[in-house]
């Protein structure tokens, strides 16, 4: 009896090298399931950004290009426009961290949304720069201790975090913007349905679709995987509400 299937869009015999308890693995699995269910594996181009999210290209079995830090949505724009110029209906999505999408790449992200580029962006929000060792990122919450906010993020000194899904929802070219979480089964199911919707919106050509995923980073948060999920449930989802902000 087989109770568990690896999605077809996950490479055979690949190794997930994410830290134990990290939600990247779950997020990528959901993306792979959606690609399978929509039957778009053979016409999907993934844009992997800089940071932990780049590791997507080692595990996801679709064509993939890595983008310079922050430029995922610009690279995706170029690819989608090129496909379109050649009469092709390939699916293009980015898989980015919050530092990539909402800090260094905010201009590219927001302008792609404003232009209504027919692409999908998945943003993993783990409230810090994970790969470089847990520095304060654009989404680190007030009072959060990081390696560059050792006394906690202070609104007077460091300024405020960005609410990405809300911001992207404000852009007229956005057709779908949602924030999801992965801390329990119900949320994982909802997350998958949001990711699926985002891809479906792209297939329909309705505009820029966006999913922000609240994810754990146990290593840099210095919490156990369980406590990390508790933090998302108890603390982060109060600051970053899990909901659909825009649906055209």
């Amino acid at each position: 009896m087989q109770v568990f299937n690896v999605p077809k869009s996950i490479k055979k015999d690949c190794t997930f090298t994410f830290c134990a308890g990290c939600d990247h693995g779950v997020a990528i699995k959901l993306v792979a399931q959606v690609i399978d269910e929509l039957n778009i594996q053979d016409r999907t181009l993934a844009i992997a950004s800089s940071g932990c999210s780049v590791l997507l290209y080692n595990v996801l079995d679709v064509d993939c290009i890595e983008s310079p830090h922050g430029r995922g949505c610009a690279v995706a724009t170029g690819a989608k426009r090129a496909f379109s110029a050649n009469g092709k209906d390939n699916i293009v999505f980015t898989y980015q961290g919050d530092g990539d999408f909402a800090s260094i790449g905010l201009a590219e992200s927001m302008h792609s949304a404003l232009r209504g580029e027919k692409i999908t962006a998945i943003c993993i929000n783990n409230t810090n720069y994970g790969m470089t060792g847990g520095q304060m990122g654009p989404t680190s919450v007030l009072n959060q201790v990081t390696t560059t906010s050792p006394m906690g993020r202070n609104e007077q000194y460091h300024g405020f975090p960005i609410k990405t899904a809300e911001q992207i929802a404000l852009c007229d070219g956005t057709c779908f913007s949602a924030r999801v979480a992965l801390y329990d089964y119900k949320n994982i199911i909802n997350a998958k349905s949001a990711i699926k919707k985002a891809f479906e919106y792209q297939i329909k050509g309705l505009g820029f679709s966006f999913v922000e995923i609240l994810s754990s980073c146990p290593t840099n948060w210095k919490l156990s995987p369980q406590d990390s999920h508790t933090r998302i449930k108890e603390e982060l989802s109060k600051i970053y509400p899990v909901k659909v902000f825009k649906e055209k």
């Binding site: 310079p68 610009a74 690279v75 170029g78 426009r81 090129a82 110029a85 009469g87």
Partner: peptide, 27 residues
């Protein structure tokens, strides 16, 4: 029916070219 984007910056423009050329298109 070709692609033209008034990019938000030169940084965005050249990165669009990365994506565009990766698909095998002349950019």
């Amino acid at each position: 029916g070709l692609g033209y984007v008034c990019a938000e910056s030169e940084i965005a423009a050249i990165n669009m070219a990365l994506g565009g050329t990766a698909t095998g298109t002349k950019v």
